[in-house]
Amino acid sequence: MAVVTIARTGGSGGEEIGKAVAQKLGYEYIGKNMILKGVEVRGEQWLEWGKQLDEHGPSPWERFDRSFTGFVSLVESCIYGFALENNKVITGRGGNFLLKDVPFALRTYITAPVEERIRRVSDREHVNMETARRMIGFSDHERSSYLHTVYHRDGADPEDYDMVFNTGSLSVDEVARQILDEIPAREKQATPEAQEKLRQLALAARIKADILTDFQVFIPTLEVVHDGEAIVIQGVAHSLKQQERVLEIARRAAGTDRIRSLLNLRGA
């Protein structure tokens, strides 16, 4: 009844470890496939955009484009949705940032010295060292650029995780075992309060995604949070009609949770 997030650098063995942990615990492993499946539910064009935008550092244009902001909100909503189902190992995509207030989420970061990672990728992909170095440089940069844009953190700071492992000196089995050893203590943290907190986070993310992926509405300043009592919606709407559409979408998703609107009407 816990959730494990695994952030990793290229060639660190992070995915291998994630899959091993998932298999041993009987948890579901959430990687690119599952994330894109979740995104596809919203519509085929989101899947198409998703394939390009997933774990990708956005260009200045993309960053403010609705496809990127919409995609990010979908990924966040998916991750929260998976976390709510429990018993998941979630890879990358800022999962540790999203679940930092959830005590039954174990946030891990797996890396190794870059020369070691280059060697591994060179072996695994059957490319020379120079090519491997470029591949790793590219993927590390893309991932950290995505995280920097969305979470304003670089993804390499130990402070953002519960445990950090160096697979330059620890084997995949050792790291997997360390993660498994910590699970019982995490499960104890799945109190009703903690689960309610996650439910609230997930609901806010769902509503935000519903609004940002609705094509009748373009509201890049949108913020949706749950303050413990209600869903709070902030942002600048261009017209009354837009404001109403936003609230309509929110109400539909919020169910019995209350909505509090702090939307500003432009010019009003």
Partner: peptide, 30 residues
């Protein structure tokens, strides 16, 4: 604080002292 310079880093905000001790002990046989 560079992760390359350590084998394991533990953040005690969510991990209790006893948990960290156990995790360290578990790694000793290897």
């Amino acid at each position: 604080s560079h992760p390359d310079d350590y084998d394991m880093t533990f953040n005690t905000s969510h991990l209790g002292r006893d948990e960290v001790v156990k995790l360290i002990l578990d790694e000793i046989p290897a």
